[in-house]
Amino acid sequence: MAKHSPVVGRYVTIEVDGCEYSVFYLRNGSGVPLVCQHTAGCHNHQWRGLLEDPEITANYDVIAYDLARHGKSDPPNNREWWKEEYLLTAEHFMNFINAFCEALELDRPIFMGSSFGGNVALQLALHHPDKYRAVIPVEAAEHAPGFFLDLWRHPHANAAQVCGSGVWDLMAPQSPEHDRWQTWHYYTQGAEVFKGDLHFYSVDHDMRGQLGNIDTRRCPVIMMTGTYDYLTPPEATEATARQIPGGIYIEMEDIGHFPMSENYPLFAVYLKEALRIIESKS
């Protein structure tokens, strides 16, 4: 008897700012759509625990896509992308997510992302509040400078290992060793896009002075950060949430920057609380 997962993968073709993308996504569950963005330089299998969590998928349609150029999603089909430096911007990132959700005809999904996915969640709450039921920015902040580094793909170093081990201590030492190495493994697979992703994360994403304009009555914002995250430490996320009228902050003990991937059972405790809060506001 084959041990099949209930998770199913599919491709959908979308158009974003003139780019045609073949986008791969994983999906399981039914109910309120919960769209999940992986971290920079990674792919959707970071959400493997959530996608197979029967408690969540009983009530939520969990969809985790690979951003273009990541995992099984290709670079644009209709451009000579190899002749341009990849530098992700907030505008293109948001347009991609909006186009993906529209293509799947999702009815005001909850959007959750971690790290650069968390930062774009904040951007969506500000610029597209009526498209999303709520956002859950995980490991996010109004501004996250310092990680747009040449060393991520220096030709004199093994970029796969630099990316995998460069993010190693973003994870908590208490997280299960197997899950941390699995996350390391994912990071060895995205070395060519990591720096371009971080252009958004550390450079183009700067919401300082704008957080007060987020309307959480239209789009609730529930922020969550782990105590072992050194890029957006708890105090950075908390300070961000405090500037958002009605913004909520949940601190996650003993976990790091990749909570869904490094220790899903612990992350699930906090996620269920965030979903309960969103349900109470709907």
């Binding site: 170093a157 081990s165 201590d169 072992y228 430490p233």
Partner: peptide, 30 residues
């Protein structure tokens, strides 16, 4: 404790300084 759990965290948030040929560090980072 948090921020003492690696060379990146301690260099970003504590008093660790990383000096010299950091490319050699990256070549052997794993």
């Amino acid at each position: 404790a948090p921020m003492f759990h690696g060379i990146w965290s301690a260099s970003f948030r504590r008093d660790l300084k990383i000096e010299g040929n950091t490319l050699a560090l990256m070549q052997n980072l794993r």
